[in-house]
Write a protein that binds this DNA or RNA. Structure first.
Lengths: 151, 151
DNA sequence: TTAAAAGGTGTATTTTGAATACATCTTTAT
DNA sequence: ATAAAGATGTATTCAAAATACACCTTTTAA
């Protein structure tokens, strides 16, 4: 059982971006440096987040990305749901592939579904804001605490 | 997000086995036939369940497997936990691999862990007995309803 | 007006782990 | 003895994720 690294990266990109305020923008290069993830991956993730309407980007010199909406409107549960798309926890979750004869009378899928629901219910109680509430600590960890990162 | 097929298979093997009573035993061949899973895989799964002490097997003619303890003592949550072993939902779940700089101050892992806890809490409310409560229906679906499957 | 900085996009390759298959051994009832 | 049943280790296949590469477009400051 796992989530995709992609999901992990996306969340981290949002955390980083959420620490920028006003006209400040996060650059792919910065994000790539802070997390030690290749620019290529960050690019992909960012592009995807733009398509989903979670961040907005500006091209060209002085460009970068910033959140497309307030951090407290970005729900973690919904985010993870979107990023992970398919939840085929059991063969029978995917009609069309399923050929388990007992699935019509099998309670397992209901139980697993209920558990999955509980999983997301918890995630849905949080927003990006909860992930960046300790802004100063995070900035320190990222080496953004000096305030002069003009490169 | 997904579970291993292996986990799915294991649960199904247990369901089938749980439908046998008294001195009746389930044979790998039977299980393989009912679910249309190759004997090779069933073999692996069964072997694993034996090692985990969930079923006991008898070799030789007239052999087969049966539950090693009452169905209501086989907890679904514990089972899934065991079968899925590693839950590295985020990079930072695996110290040793993790190199995310913000992990010491990152709330995400706590949230995900809480959600995972909720997932298992639901599963832990059920035992194998709950999965075979509709014994007759399951037997019918499996083509075991005639009562004479002596092959 | 052009060069550099920034993101956009498609495709290719690598890696990993699950899924599957094969071969051969051991045990035991008849 | 032998056939039925499980035990076990290894090898192969396959798919998906992870990663890398190449090149395009937009913007703006010099």
């Amino acid at each position: 059982m796992n989530l995709k690294k992609y999901t992990d990266y996306s969340l981290r990109v949002l955390i980083f971006t959420g620490l920028k305020h006003g006209e400040e923008r996060a650059r792919i290069k910065e994000i790539s440096d802070v997390y030690n993830i290749s620019q290529e991956h960050v690019r992909k993730v960012v592009h995807d987040l733009v398509k989903r309407g979670l961040v907005e980007s500006t091209r060209g010199r002085g460009g970068g990305i910033r959140l497309a909406k307030p951090a407290n409107e970005i729900n973690i549960g919904m985010l993870v749901r979107e990023l992970e798309q398919d939840f085929v926890l059991l063969e029978c979750f995917d009609q069309g592939v399923n050929h388990c004869v007992i699935s019509p009378g099998c309670s397992l899928k209901h139980i697993i579904n209920k558990a999955l629901g509980a999983f997301f219910k918890v995630l849905e109680e949080y927003t990006l804001e909860d992930l960046i509430h300790n802004e100063e600590e995070l900035k320190t960890l990222m080496g953004m605490d000096t305030g002069d990162r003009k490169q």
